[in-house]
Design a binder for these strands. Structure first.
Lengths: 194, 194
DNA sequence: CGGGCTTTGTCAACATTGATGACCAGCGTA
DNA sequence: TACGCTGGTCATCAATGTTGACAAAGCCCG
């Protein structure tokens, strides 16, 4: 009887393979979305067996969440002066050169939006928006209804992000960035000022 | 030899079963999202074999698109006076009693957003937003950059809709509707006026 | 050294999913 | 009656996420 031939793969510490899987997943999910990317594709790219992916992350959905939860660097502009903050924030969301880490974060957030009919994804999305947009704003706004206004601003930012990276509105994509910043920023400013 | 026993289902004209499938799909997809609902579930609800669903609609994605493409009744407010239109539009999107046909349309649009990592869905979403929000606005806006402004308004409306029906921001859901209308509406009004 | 224990990895299956193709039944018409 | 069209069923396919049994490697303790 012939001995079973096993593909032999050198043993590595858990953290290493885990990171390999995480990175592969991040690349693939961010560019192609949640359900266009199979577990076997992630595994192949990481040079790993498909079962290992599940073993390390529990489920595809969990892997997706961990891979897309880039901790957006807190938007510094939100700590600056209230005057002109509207434009500054929009510029931050819209104008990032696509190589910068912030841009990756925006893309990842867009991927979360696109996959939001998974219940767990939806929860993560909600928390992310709260943490990244709404909560930092609440602490800065003056006047009445600060919490409501902060969340409305978050809605507007989500809308812009969604229109550009999910819906991919051709008019917005083709438009002059500075015009977008000026118009949308001023509109947001109304919610900041009141 | 016993003759094969077949589940006999009375023959019906194609349009009838097609509608039955369409309606079942609309109900299920709107409430539970695209990939929580299987073809077999739709078929069961319509009292029909699963293969028939595909036969009539080509694919699950196609069925989803046809089922969620409610022709939103053109938003009449967009034909009214420019003054105060911001609030009027927001009211239309946010305050609908959930029994009215418009509310169904909003829910369906939200389902499209949630499933937007399917390429075809994304395209439909883009066209729907163009037709329902952007294009009617373009024809009304006065002043420079009318097209850009219309699409920015569409982005804001999408943002509000997304925040409430996809992200389900608890602050917005709990907030006083009239406050939301006033604040968000005035913010949009800035883009209408300029 | 050697025997156990945990860690890391592999493989073969499973259930479910969307989708297809062969076939069948009713029915009108030539 | 025979043909063909239309509406419907069933068995089956390939792919998917997931699981469990098992195999090695390293490590600890006698």
């Amino acid at each position: 009887m012939t001995t079973r031939l096993r593909a032999v793969r050198p043993r590595q510490p858990a953290a290493v393979t885990r990171k390999a899987i995480h990175d592969a997943a991040h690349e693939l999910f961010r560019n192609e979305g949640f359900d266009a990317v199979g577990i076997r594709a992630v595994a192949a790219r990481a040079g790993v067996d498909a079962a290992l992916v599940i073993r390390h992350f529990g489920s595809k959905e969990q892997l997706f969440l961990e891979a897309m939860t880039v901790d957006l660097p807190a938007i510094k502009v939100m700590e600056g002066p209230l005057e002109g903050m509207g434009r500054a924030i929009v510029e931050h969301v819209v104008c990032l050169p696509s190589s910068r880490p912030g841009a990756l974060a925006v893309t990842a957030l867009a991927a979360l939006f696109r996959a939001s009919d998974r219940g767990e994804v939806q929860r993560t999305l909600r928390e992310t928006i709260e943490n990244v947009f709404a909560e930092p704003l609440v602490r800065r706004l003056e006047g009445g209804d600060a919490e409501l206004r902060a969340h409305l601003i978050a809605a507007q930012l989500g809308g812009l992000l969604t229109s550009m990276h999910v819906v991919q509105d051709p008019v917005l994509l083709a438009a002059d960035r500075s015009a977008v910043v000026a118009r949308y920023g001023d509109s947001i400013q109304r919610l900041i000022d009141t």
